[in-house]
Amino acid sequence: MRWGWLAIAVALLLYPWILTGPFYERMGADLLLAAIAAAAWNILGGYAGQISVGHAVFYGIGAYVPLLVYTHWQLPPVLGIPAGILVSLAVAAVIGVPTFRLQGHYFSMATIAVAELVRIVVGNWDFVGAAIGLMGPAVPRSLLDLSFKSAVPYYYIFLAVLAAILALTAHLERGRMGYYWRAIRAGERAARSLGVPVRRYKLWALLLSAGFTSLAGSLYALMVGFVDPESAFGILVSVEMIITAALGGVGTLLGPLLGAAILVPLKATTNSLFGGGGSGLTYILYGGIILLLARFEPGGLIELSRRIATRSLKKAKARAA
């Protein structure tokens, strides 16, 4: 297990030296970014079992605020990251405080409603660029603008952030927080009977998840230097987080990274094969994958491989006996 982690870490560190050129460098950065966002979603959806279908709202806020502080006050976009996180946490509280008293469905419905609401408002609000969106600094004024021509610096920034999120998740997973989250996911009634303050722990998961998703959005805006309502707040942003985590394996540490490692190259391929028209097909595929996962393997690929492994182990044992 430890060796597996080491191998992954080494592979990720060396990736930009092995697959060079703008296409692969950008794909690597996109992959890590997708993994960050999915890992953030996974804290809430995977570990605590509260399914958000509107996480784009946090991603979008995170993406907008840095470019907003640049546009209006010429500040370095990075300074907008904490502000974005604060706004995201406030929105998260507006959604989570009422719905976590209720059944899980209400939370899911509220997430998509708030995400749509914010998307429409942003798309019509001139202060935040309305339908056009916002631009970052065209030419970096200082290093603080974090504006690079190559994707490689972003790749390493993203890698550091991903490592930090996964380390924190791993830490929480092993402690009381992680146990309580999994108990809540498995059965709230039983969890409460054992003294788990369900609402509070769900809120913790939501706030952590919203904060990291916001950070992911900020990183996206820093790299791309441009945001508009669809690319930041669109429903497909939420869809990509969900499918990335769900394909790899919800509630597992590596699931989001695994999902991203499959989906990002897949999307790059379908887009280059079918051109712009490929996006429709990509999302048909996404819908189909989500549906099939929910129907046949809600645990994702990691659970599937675990099951296959134990089955073959049993068979081997039976043969030995």
């Binding site: 999994r182 108990a183 498995a186 059965g187 009634r189 039983a190 969890a191 009977s193």
Partner: peptide, 8 residues
Amino acid sequence: VPATFEEM
């Protein structure tokens, strides 16, 4: 009706 945490 037992309410154990099945996957744990």
